[in-house]
Simulated assay, not measured.
Amino acid sequence: MLPLERQTRIIELMDVHETLLTQELAEKVGVSEATIRRDLQGMAEQGLLARTHGGAVRLQRSLTQEPAFAAKSVRMPSEKLAIADYVASQVKDGSTLIFDAGTTILAVAQRLAGRPLTAITLDLPAAQVLAVGETEVLLLGGRVRSNSFSITGPWTEELLRGLRADLFLMGAHAVDERGVSNAVIEEAMVKRLAIEASAKTLLLADHSKFGWRAMTQVCALDRVSEVVSDRKSRKFGWLRDAGLEVTLV
């Protein structure tokens, strides 16, 4: 098993158990305790978890801080790919799409790259991936945020006010009964304007994003046209009660 595969498996286990001993992780991952210790040390340095005596503990979610891009990129890879495959199958050629920032949205960009679309991006990695073949890419100007590569600020907001799109592919830091929320105020503002500029908004989020709340409100649930997530969550009854279309992949 490659190091990235091991670390992805460790994160999945930590999401379920929160705290695990090195011996338990070694047994569940199928490698030696020495290998797990090296993985845990590297993951702790990246901010993916915290080391404890004899094991590791999942970091508590923060209302005001978001994980760095490197940390998010190894979380829920199979779930993000399943979401991306579904969304790509639903997008029509010739559409104009706004791409939010984030690793789930990046997975969608990888699936759509090269198709005859107009892609308006709020994310540097997505712009790089999309700029091939027949895809026309418009990268909105603004401040590039360190460690996340999202684009925010007054320039971005002004450009969004003058745009119209068929679809906004939106990510989220958290989702609960009160709506979609985000840890970064500047990103929340950009998301609101992208919603206003788009005929439809798809919320794309794996199961770990549901049932809790971040610091800054983005929008109420009634501003979302459809929620696309994975099948591992059992927390979607309240979304359907709110009248939302929910697609699990």
Rank of each mutant, 00 (worst) to 15 (best):
R6G: 05
Q7F: 06
D15R: 12
T19Y: 03
G30E: 01
G30I: 10
G30D: 03
V31P: 00
V31G: 01
T35I: 00
R37H: 02
R51N: 00
V57K: 14
L59F: 09
R61Q: 08
Q65M: 12
E66S: 15
P67L: 10
P67D: 03
S78E: 13
E79H: 14
A82Y: 03
A84C: 10
D85K: 15
Y86A: 11
V87E: 01
A88S: 14
S89T: 07
S89E: 07
G94Q: 06
I98A: 05
D100T: 13
T103C: 09
T104D: 02
L106Q: 07
A107G: 00
L112Q: 03
P116T: 09
P116C: 08
I120G: 10
T121C: 10
L122I: 08
L124G: 02
A127Q: 02
A127H: 04
Q128H: 14
G133E: 05
E134D: 09
G141F: 01
N147T: 10
P154K: 11
W155V: 15
E157L: 14
E158W: 13
A165T: 08
D166W: 06
L167R: 09
F168R: 06
L169I: 07
L169V: 08
G171L: 07
A174L: 08
V175P: 03
D176C: 13
E177L: 14
E177I: 08
E177H: 09
S181Y: 02
V190Q: 06
A194C: 03
A194R: 06
I195F: 02
E196C: 11
E196D: 12
E196N: 11
A199R: 14
A205W: 01
D206E: 13
H207F: 03
H207Q: 02
F210D: 00
F210I: 09
G211N: 01
A220Q: 11
L221M: 02
L221F: 04
R223V: 05
V228M: 02
V228K: 03
S229W: 01
R231F: 13
K232R: 15
K232A: 10
G237W: 00
W238K: 11
R240I: 14
R240G: 08
R240L: 13
V246P: 13
T247N: 05
